[in-house]
Design a protein around this nucleic acid. Sequence first.
DNA 1: CTGGGGATGGGGCCC
DNA 2: GGGGCCCCATCCCCA
Length: 526
Amino acid sequence: MKSDSIGLQNHSKQLLLQLNQQRAKGYLCDVIIVVENALFRAHKNVLAASSVYFKSLVPHDNLINLDTEMVSPSIFRQVLDFIYTGCLSSSDSVSDHSISSLLIAASYLQLTELAALCRRKLKHNGQTPSSSNKMTPSSSTSPTPNGHTPGPLCLSSTPLHNHQHHNNHSGSKKGSQRNQRPSQEGRLREDLSEKVFISGSRCASLSPSGEGRSNGLGLDLSKRSPSESTATEEVSPSSLLQSSSPHSSSLSPTPTPPTTSSAKPEPPKTSTDIQPRAPRKRPRGDKVTPELEDGEVDGEENGLDQSEGSGHSGRGGGGRKGRRNGNTNYIYRQPQPGFEPGVGDNLYVCIPCGKGFPSSEQLNAHVDTHTHDQLYLKDEEEEEECGGYLKDKDPDTCPDDSASKGMKPDPEEPGHLCTVCSKSCKDATSLRQHEKSHWLNRPFPCNICGKLFTQRGTMTRHMRSHLGLKPFACEECGMRFTRQYRLAEHMRVHSGEKPYECQLCGGKFTQQRNLLSHMRMHTSPS
DNA sequence: CTGGGGATGGGGCCC
DNA sequence: GGGGCCCCATCCCCA
C-alpha cells in the first residue's frame, strides 16, 4: 500500500454503517443464523470477514444453527451488533456475566477481536476469563491499534477484521458431501428450503436431553417455555410467510423460530453437515407404511411425517431433497393429542403450531390466522406500487400500468394483446398476469432467502417449501407434498399406473416429465 | 463408469 | 389465491 494513497477517512465506517442499516432492514441479507428460537439475518460477507468460524460455513450454508450452549439469542444479538459496529452496546448494560457469555460466544464463533475485547474488559474488571474460553491466541489478540483502549467495549478502528488464516474447513466437508452444484442460486434455494426444518428436526434428534425438542415440526417455533422466550424480536416461520412484504421489516434481526440447536460444542450445525445421507432403501414394491419405527425416531419426531430417513422407505425417501437430508422429514411434529399420523382426519398439518386439520382449506385458513396481516397488506401495496416502480423507470413499459390505465392493450378490447410479446390473452386479468412475466422487477420477495417472484402465489408456494408446509399426504406411505398435483403424481407410484407411453418404443411411464425426458433420449443425437 | 429410468423438488405461467 | 401443468434440475438405483 502506498502511504500516499488518497482515501476517505470515514469510508470503512460509512460502509459498515450502511451494512448495519441494511441488516436492520434485512436488505440483501443472505444468511440466517438460528439461535434457539431466534433468527438473525445477516450478510455472509460481513460474517465471513469477522469470524473464521462463519467464514468456513457461509459458503456452504444459508442457514446456520448455533449451539445454544455456547451462545444465547441475546448474546448473539450483541455479537452481531459488534460485528456490524465494532462496538458492544452500552457498557453499562454489559455485566461481567454477559461479558463472560460474550467471551464464550466469541471463542465459539472465533471472533478473535471480540474475544480479545471481552478479555480485556474482564481483566479490567478484575475477572479472570473462564478457562473454557480459549481462543487461538495468535489471532485473538489484536492489540488495539494505537494501543489505546477504545472505550471499554469498542474496537478502535475497523471492527471487521480479515482473518487470513482460516484453516478451518469444517464447512468444506459439507460441500464435498454433495456434488457440486452448478447453480449457485439453485443451491441456495435448496439449502434454505431445507434448513429451516431440517435444523429443527435434527435438533430434535440430536439433542439427547430432549431439549430443543421441536414441537415436532421442523420449525418449532414455539416450543420454548415462555420464560425462555427471549425478548428478542421473534418471528415465527409463519410470520415469515405472512410477512413477506417486499422490504419488510420482518427481516429485522430477530425473528424467532424453530429449532434449537443441538447442544454440542461443535461447529454450528448447518443443515448440510448434520445429516449423513441416509442410506436409501429400495422401496420399490414394498410399501412401507408411514408408521415410523418407534424407537428409531423418538416420540417427538414421528408425527405425520414419514420419516424417510429412518429407514422408512416409502418411495425411496423422497426426492433429492429428502434424500439429501437423509432423515429429512420436513415435518417433525409432536403428536398432538387427537392427532395421529396418517390416521384420522387431520392430515393437513400446520408446521408452525403442529395443529392438524381435515382439509387444506381449513389448514390454509388456520395458517392465515398465524400470519397474515402485514404481509399481504404490504404485498398489496407493493403490487400497487409496482406500477410505481416500473413507472419510475419507464412508464410506458409498465404493463400493469398500461393495463390498468387502459393504455395500449385496452382491457376492454376482445383480443388482449401483450404489449411485450403480442401474446393474445382472453381477458384483461389474464393479460395482466401474463404481462407480469415480462417484468424485470418482481414484487414478491421471499422473506427467508430473498428470492423474488412475479406472482404472489408462487412466492407463497415457495415460502411453504421453506417452512415445510406440506398439506398433501399420501395415504399409502405418508409421504407429504406441497402440491396436490405432486401427490396425484406420486400416487401412481403406488398404483403402478403408467399412463404415459412412448410412441417410439412403447415404454411406459408414470410421469409425463419422465416420458419427455425419455423422448429426449430418443431424439438427442447421442 | 455410464446411461437410462424412477422419483421428487422448485419455479414459471396459465386458467 | 389456488390448481394444474410444463420445464428444469437432481438424486438414486440399476443394468
